[in-house]
């Protein structure tokens, strides 16, 4: 084996995810095997219904495979129970959604605080973590605003702060620019790429070919299978 195997962050082997819809069996994921190293920048592209989101949900432990094994940081997560998976989501995985999914009644800072609250992090330490996080994303002065007082780009930045405040190893982004104008989208991508430079593993689902091509590794999905796995040397605008 190559040396990389020991530093593998994610190891999927022969993953199936089948749904029964009426009397029809839908193979959302069909024998997917994937090896992802720490610090990779990956885009997942493909037409609607090709299984991109299912793959992302599965990587994020929001969904369970019908068959196959999934090792995350050398732990067989398919054998974990619901509570252990929730714990792992909290500690090791960050999510960024197309719809931001901010809690409307909480301020930006309180939204960022949520994963810390769920983890039971003491109040003083939370402050210590939240402030630099908001600072780094340029939304410190919006900390006490509610989501409806923020622009789309600002909302997504709050969501990124929330996804990274626990300092997870992997960041999963589902169409993170899908609801943003071009300029804000560029900003958000730049922020995400900055996180990659700091060592985070970024896996991003996107429809946007230009966005997708910026990743150092581009996966293409088709009918639940990995169709193409392309590596380029350096990320950035193509």
């Amino acid at each position: 084996m190559r040396e990389l195997a020991t530093t593998a962050m994610i190891e999927l082997s022969h993953i199936d995810r089948h749904f029964q819809v009426g009397d029809q069996l839908v193979k959302a994921l069909d024998d997917v095997s994937l090896h992802i190293d720490r610090g990779e920048y990956i885009s997942i592209m493909g037409p609607s219904g090709s299984g991109k989101s299912t793959l992302l949900n599965l990587l994020g432990l929001l969904d369970q495979p019908t068959a196959g094994t999934y090792f995350l940081d050398e732990v067989d997560v398919t054998s974990l129970d619901d509570g252990q998976q929730a714990h792992l989501r909290n500690k090791a995985i960050g999510f960024v959604f197309q719809m931001f999914h901010l809690v409307p009644r909480l301020t930006a800072a309180e939204n960022v605080e949520l994963p810390l609250v769920l983890a039971g992090v003491p109040v003083e330490e939370r402050k210590r973590l939240i402030e630099p996080s908001l600072e780094a994303l340029g939304i410190a002065e919006r900390a006490h605003h509610k989501p409806d007082q923020l622009s789309g780009g600002q909302r997504q930045r709050v969501a990124i702060a929330r996804a990274t405040v626990m300092q997870p190893g992997v960041l999963l982004a589902d169409e993170p620019t899908g609801n943003l104008d071009h300029k804000s989208g560029e900003d958000v991508i730049a922020i995400l790429e900055g996180l990659v430079d700091q060592g985070i593993t970024l896996i991003m689902v996107t429809h946007d070919m230009d966005m997708g091509r910026r990743a150092t590794r581009q996966l293409r999905m088709m009918d639940g299978r990995l169709d193409q796995d392309l590596r380029t040397s350096n990320h950035g605008p193509s």
Partner: peptide
């Protein structure tokens, strides 16, 4: 429902 999904994604236990 959205918020519940979000809390679960952020690592909330069912009991929480």
């Amino acid at each position: 429902t959205n918020e519940i999904g979000l809390l679960r994604a952020l690592g909330a236990q069912r009991s929480q």
